[in-house]
Design a protein around this nucleic acid. Structure first.
Lengths: 159, 159
DNA sequence: CTTTCTTTGACCTTGCCTGACCTTAACCAT
DNA sequence: ATGGTTAAGGTCAGGCAAGGTCAAAGAAAG
């Protein structure tokens, strides 16, 4: 855990904890200074860890009085969340893509750690041993089926 | 007993002794240097001696600040149940067979209702859309992977 | 002599970090 | 208004730092 990007990510996510109403505003240069890095590294963190797939939107303004605003997308109705995720998957999905979606579900409290582990293991390329164009399609089918199953169990213990 | 791979294996297993909470993190290159071997030999050791069958899971990340994490799966009564089930599955398994095993796990309290739903949905013949001799083999692989993942999380809330 | 296990090295992929250069906005002074 | 200055933030390519893969050579075991 000794890379700066992880630290910055952690710091920003902590900001959401402190009564921030799902929205956080920072100054890019200021933050860069705090972490002793170049300003563009902030952008790197934002584009790799605060994407829509991760459940965030980033807005900003340049010039004097500029800012960077990070908004956490609320997944109001969990049911909406599920269909949204299914859209996100599409007809095929890479292992990385699938793991991102599963992580998101975990962070949103839609699944437990165990459940996310079960899902990830079912989608690993080591398990889905078929050639590549088909494998990503199969993965999409399996992932969607699992998500829909979770949808049916929303409200059960463990969601 | 004087080949490097055995020494590396021994060394890594010793690391688990020193209050490491069933989890150990290393740097591949660093370790390779310590044992005067090429880095890829570390991978060889990991893939031959730290497999799931041996009771380990290996995770890693590349890039700056990368790491290799070795996780020791807990060994207790439930583990026996799990490995028994994996044996039961064999090289291929029908949808009926898989569902029977999942039902059994539910009855044994090894999984929750939600989890059993997730597993069943991932194994349905409607989802695993490939021709038949291969489909049952794929189903076996997926089911085993999921069961092993549960093993990995035994002790968590929800088991 | 064949098979299986080990060791090695060449090449690949992913992820992180930096710096040079660009764009936009606000605030002036004229 | 208008044009310059300053204060933000944005982009991109390149370098570096891991770890991954694979095939082939070498060593051990049977």
């Amino acid at each position: 855990m000794s890379n700066i990007s992880d630290l910055i990510e952690k710091y920003l996510k902590e900001l959401f904890g402190s009564g921030s109403q799902g929205q956080v505003e920072i100054q890019r240069n200021e933050l860069a200074e705090k972490f002793n890095c170049v300003p563009s590294q902030i952008n790197y963190v934002l584009t790799t860890r605060f994407t829509v797939e991760h459940g965030f939107v980033v807005e900003s303004r340049r010039g004097g009085g500029g800012f960077v605003r990070i908004i956490k997308l609320p997944m109001d109705e969990k049911v909406n969340a599920v269909s949204y995720l299914c859209d996100l998957i599409g007809r095929d999905v890479s292992q990385q893509g699938a793991e991102g979606i599963i992580r998101r579900m975990l962070e949103e409290g839609l699944v437990t750690e165990r459940e996310s582990g079960i899902m990830k293991s079912a989608l690993s390329r080591d398990v889905l041993r078929i050639a590549l164009p088909a494998r990503d399609q199969l993965r999409a089918l399996i992932l969607k089926a699992m998500i829909i199953s979770i949808l049916h169990h929303i409200g059960d213990k463990g969601d």
